[in-house]
Write a protein that binds this DNA or RNA. Structure first.
Lengths: 191, 191
DNA sequence: TTCATTTCTTGCCTTATGGCAAGTGTGATT
DNA sequence: AATCACACTTGCCATAAGGCAAGAAATGAA
């Protein structure tokens, strides 16, 4: 369960708590294209990815599919708001590859959340981190060129470029797949 | 203190709790251009706006000032992450007008947070709401034209258009003030 | 009032990105 | 092998938005 230790290492969780938390996880397998969560669902379990890649997305009012995030190894593939507030999500979470995941049912997650102070703190940090990253993404969309955003993604998450189709990467970057294709052509000699 | 009742009305807060919470607030006055929080600060108090308008912004690496939000009447003018996690913020919060605000010192905020379950829930909802709105803003920047984003702002927060200079509104919408000026010219006959 | 500063507008031209459509490649299925 | 679906590229042109600079308008200070 070392993968889980990685996820929870940064918070005020004691060794004993860590044991309790890790034991609460159950390993499941998700097939490519399966949904972990769909629009309208209220998250009934907490899911983190041990192996594989998940994509979250929404449809805008023109019916365009906009990628809101990629969730990989040791990251959490659930809408934090839907889980914590038990409200329906507006996002879809779909496996891009076969995945191995750890899950905790919501009622058990809630038990841990209320009984282990460190886990509660960790949950808040998770939400904070999500917010922080989204702020950066938003600012990046406003101020950076598409090419720079692509460069950053390539630098910080190279595995996504290997595993996800171009059109999903493009909508994550806020451009069309046509434009991304041209940008890649431009930047090919940079590597 | 009816303004405060408005802010806290949606959560699981009892009447007695509401009294305790409202009593914890202290009213202060903020002058135009004063900072409520600056980059590097860790939020030492919780602040909500009774009257006036506050702008939050960051500088990108080119030195451009990017407006991340406007905070008006009955809204909370503090970085939620900095407050909850007691970490330095990367944003500036500056009064665009003279403001009347309610504040709670951090240590008292924390007492309430840990002693009143409903307040704790409310805090989580606040963070969720912040996240939710930011997601929508991000998607809007990706999929909507600048003119549509301007229309939405005009529809949903008309008072901001009255109180904030064009350049701040422009950077909030993700465009230059020149472009916003042209868009306004285009849309002037829409009202 | 006068002057200075800031805010907003506008003209001219450039650049980034998009829309469409054709074409290439690749892997899966039969 | 033939076919199909999907992923990706590319050419041509359209459009949205930006950069710069001049000027107009509003605001505030002396």
């Amino acid at each position: 369960m070392t993968a889980l230790h990685t996820i929870y290492q940064h918070s005020l969780i004691t060794t004993a708590d860590m044991e309790t938390i890790c034991k609460a996880h159950r390993r499941i397998h998700i097939c490519k294209d399966d949904f972990l969560l769909q629009k309208g669902d209220t998250a009934k379990s907490y899911v983190c990815v041990e192996e594989g890649l998940v994509r979250s997305y929404v449809y805008d009012y023109d019916g365009n599919d906009i990628t809101t995030g990629f969730i990989g190894k040791n990251e959490i593939a659930i809408d934090v708001v839907s889980l914590f507030n038990q409200v329906p999500t507006v996002e879809y979470f779909q496996a891009l590859t076969d995945c191995s995941c750890f899950i905790i049912e919501f009622h058990e997650f809630q038990l841990l959340y209320h009984s282990i102070k460190g886990f509660n703190e960790w949950g808040r940090s998770w939400m904070s981190e999500t917010l922080f990253q989204l702020k950066h993404r938003t600012i990046s969309i406003i101020t950076d060129s598409a090419a720079e955003r692509y460069r950053r993604l390539r630098r910080e998450h190279p595995q996504i470029l290997q595993q996800a189709p171009l059109k999903y990467i493009a909508s994550y970057l806020g451009i069309t797949d046509t434009s991304l294709s041209r940008i890649r052509k431009e930047l090919v000699n940079e590597i």
